[in-house]
């Protein structure tokens, strides 16, 4: 486990240094108010990234999550506003739809042996298109349940607010970490990322695990969609465009190997926080264009990919066996 810890430690160190530097410049950043908003603002990204972590550890990729967020928002908004359903019923329906959607992608990836990239790309178009077919416009959600939940928060010392969605994100991370590191399912996910042939010879139920991984990712994206609709009190078919890439970025910056087999859910949390920090810093600065966020994320991503290559290339050199006849 040791060498896979190194990128994670690097992420934590970079986050701490960056945060300290930011606080040095803007002391206001070191308040529970800012920290609370950190969690709230990034909740939907964090929840999505947990699912993405599983997918990437298993050696796959899920490009459909952003579209699933958009689709969920629209579906939930229409179910509540046009059909008059209670939000909880709408959530259950949306989660069921997402579960089926993820299962279908997992089945296609396993049985048709199509790369996950292609299958989930198709899934992305389907979900985004489906959302636009339901409605082209932003659908507002006016339901007292929504306003109740949105105003739920714990007051933190120092005037900060730990909102319901922020808490939900933390809960999802804890859930994800336990599943990844403490269950047989979790070990199967790592096994698939390590070597699929070996995994199947060792008795890992490859088909079932693959389906479960993509179901988990789609359902977490759906949950993120619900959180996003709570956050904006509306459903919009073009919401969360490109979030799949932010999620992949957060996962990789968090120390998960893009080729699979290594990674930590906690690392993804730090990755999401690092992305949030960059955004907050740029807002605090005020003079920088918000596009600088993208540049910094790009640099960070590049740095981490290089770092991982170095760490894994250095330790792989020793144990490569000789080729045989």
């Amino acid at each position: 486990m040791n060498r896979s810890m190194r990128p994670l430690l690097a992420t934590v160190a970079i986050f701490l240094v960056a945060y300290a530097a930011a606080v040095f410049q803007f002391p206001g950043l070191l308040s529970t108010r800012v920290l609370g908003n950190f969690l709230t603002d990034n909740a939907f990204l964090g929840i999505t990234a947990v699912g993405m972590t599983f997918v990437i550890i298993s050696g796959g990729i899920d490009l459909s999550v952003g579209a699933v967020i958009g689709f969920t928002g629209v579906l939930v908004a229409v179910l509540i506003s046009s059909f008059g359903l209670h939000p909880l019923v709408a959530f259950a329906i949306a989660l069921a739809v997402a579960a089926l959607f993820g299962a279908a992608m997992g089945l296609a990836i396993h049985y048709l042996e199509v790369p996950a990239f292609i299958v989930t790309l198709a899934g992305m178009f389907l979900a985004r298109g489906g959302a636009s077919v339901i409605t082209q416009d932003s659908v507002p959600i006016n339901h007292e349940f929504y306003s109740t939940i949105s105003s739920l928060y714990f007051r933190l010392p120092g005037g900060g607010r730990l909102s319901f969605v922020g808490l939900l994100m933390i809960a999802v991370f804890v859930f994800g970490a336990v599943v990844a590191h403490r269950t047989r399912f979790g070990s199967y996910v790592y096994a698939l990322g390590g070597n699929t042939t070996s995994a199947s010879l060792m008795g890992v139920p490859v088909a079932r695990t693959t389906v479960q991984i993509y179901m988990l990712s789609s359902m977490l994206a759906c949950l993120a969609g619900i959180v996003f609709s709570l956050y904006t009190s509306a459903g919009y078919p073009l919401a969360a465009v490109g979030v799949e890439l932010d999620a992949i970025g957060a996962v990789v910056i968090g120390g998960t190997l893009l080729t699979g087999g290594y990674g930590f859910v906690f690392g993804t949390f730090v990755g999401v926080m690092l992305l949030g920090l960059v955004q907050t810093y740029i807002i605090f600065d005020g003079t920088l264009s918000s596009w600088w966020t993208k540049i910094v994320i790009g640099i960070l991503l590049f740095l981490f990919i290089v770092l991982q290559r170095l760490v894994f290339a250095a330790s792989a050199r020793g144990d490569r066996s000789s080729e045989t006849a």
């Binding site: 486990m1 896979s4 047989r184 070990s187 199967y188 790592y190 096994a191 990322g193 390590g194 070597n195 042939t197 070996s198 995994a199 010879l201 060792m202 008795g203 890992v204 087999g261 290594y262 144990d319």
Partner: peptide, 19 residues
């Protein structure tokens, strides 16, 4: 045919880990 990315113990017991 084992998993180089996992611990020795997990390779021994994968699928049969004590819970």
């Amino acid at each position: 045919n084992l998993l180089p990315n996992r611990s020795v113990a997990e390779n021994l017991f994968l699928g049969h880990q004590p819970t």
